[in-house]
Design a protein around this nucleic acid. Structure first.
Length: 402
DNA sequence: CCCCCCCC
């Protein structure tokens, strides 16, 4: 097979098999990259087989391939695994490419199947390759037409035959296809994600006009660095609170998605996840390439603009002092809440008082008190910054050790 | 369905 050509009917192959079970379920698919452009930290392009095109988005970890110039516009890529983001209301599909490799750097022009056999090598030639390496697309003649479905099925039949020969454990591994978080949407519920718990909230109880209940939030991050907030209520909150541990990696399925309320978003995602009691949460064993908690540290002398704002900051610094635990009586309901203040200094030569509330005051606060003589360095995430009598205060929102 | 983030 010639490495310098697109796969005839590649787009049809993808759309006929929108969510392959595993890379083994993906046939040879080489497409040309057209209209490559950045969207946030990712890149999108039109994947072309010379006849049909489909919108594609690359997982974030391919951004470096684009920046380094390896993956180029007009180049060829082999798609090794993907999932289609199929939103029923929308007619345009998007292929989220989770695994791919560069076959060729930029060709001279867009491949178009209408082009006749006589001249095709001009179109197929990578800029820096000798003409002899190119293969006329005409060599794959009538098959450039859209393939009928039964052709696609025969490919997956081959795969299932291969699976039949695999050991049971290997078969299971192949079946557990992990979906990138970015591919999840409210309209398609049959997914499995593999995510790290990068923030764990408290199990809280609340009472309001709609009633009362318990609620528990986590922030989840996948290997692309995509984050989503997941919320559990009542029985689900009680069930999963002891299951989710900060920093651990889990397979999650049978959750539901809804549009996130912009006003309360703590992560960059249009959706938020709700897990009820029927959700499946299972710790993932072994190695994982999911990045740990990401910080965006702000120097203490740069906190000014954040005072009173909604935007949260992360701080890293040396703990200079730890107060005793105080019991603060909340005015609105007279409830007493444990609180402890720590003073942190960083390399901007400023200090800030950080208040630890509730469990953080008693648990983390106590640990810090024990360590304070050794000037421990801590990283603190998601601080809300306020000002009291000219002193900057950063009450704890969440905590990660450092 | 939460979304509180408290006190000097």
């Amino acid at each position: 097979m010639d490495a310098k050509s697109v796969t005839p009917s590649a787009v049809a192959l993808i759309l006929a098999n929108p969510t392959p079970e595993s890379p083994d379920d993906v046939p040879e698919i080489v497409v040309q990259v057209l209209d490559l452009k950045p969207i946030g930290s990712r890149f999108t392009f039109m994947a072309s087989d010379g006849e049909a095109k489909v919108k594609a988005i690359l997982s974030t970890h391919f951004a470096s391939e684009v920046h380094s110039g390896k993956l180029q516009n007009l180049g060829l890529v082999r798609i090794l695994n993907y999932t289609c983001n199929d939103i029923p209301q929308k007619t345009d599909k998007m292929v989220i490419i989770t695994k791919c490799e560069v076959v060729s750097q930029a060709l001279d022009a867009e491949i178009k199947s209408e082009v006749k056999i006589e001249e095709p090598s001009v179109l197929m030639k990578p800029k820096e390759e000798a003409a002899g390496l190119s293969k006329p697309i005409g060599a794959a003649p009538a098959t450039i037409m859209l393939k009928p479905r039964h052709d696609v099925k025969s490919a997956s039949q081959i795969v299932s035959e291969q699976r039949g020969n695999a050991a049971p454990a290997a078969r299971l591994a192949m079946t557990r296809r992990v979906h990138p978080l970015i591919s999840l949407n409210p309209y398609q519920g049959n997914w499995v994600i593999k995510v790290r718990v990068t923030s764990k909230g408290n199990l809280r109880s609340y009472r309001n006009a709609r009633g009362e209940g318990h609620v528990f939030n986590v922030e989840l991050t996948d290997e692309d660095g995509t984050q989503i907030q997941a919320t559990m209520f009542n029985e689900a909150a009680k069930k999963f609170y002891p299951v989710f541990e900060l920093g651990k990696v889990y397979y999650i399925s049978k959750g539901s998605l809804r549009i996130a309320n912009k006003q309360f978003k703590t992560v960059q995602n249009d959706y938020e996840m709700t897990l009820n009691e029927t959700a499946v949460v299972e710790e993932a064993e072994g190695e994982s390439f999911i990045p740990p908690v990401q910080y965006n540290f702000v120097k203490i002398d740069m906190l000014g603009p954040y005072v009173g704002g909604r935007e949260l900051v992360d701080i890293i610094g040396v703990v200079q002092s730890v107060s005793p635990t105080l019991s603060i009586r909340r005015k609105i309901d007279n409830e007493s809440i444990p609180k402890r203040d720590i003073v942190v200094a960083d390399d901007s030569n400023k200090t800030v008082t950080i208040s630890l509330w509730n469990d953080l005051a008693t648990t983390v606060g106590e640990e810090l008190l024990d360590m304070v003589d050794s000037a421990p360095i801590i990283a603190v995430k998601s601080l809300k910054v306020s000002d009291f009598q000219g002193k900057l205060l950063a009450p704890f929102h969440k905590f990660f050790s450092g």
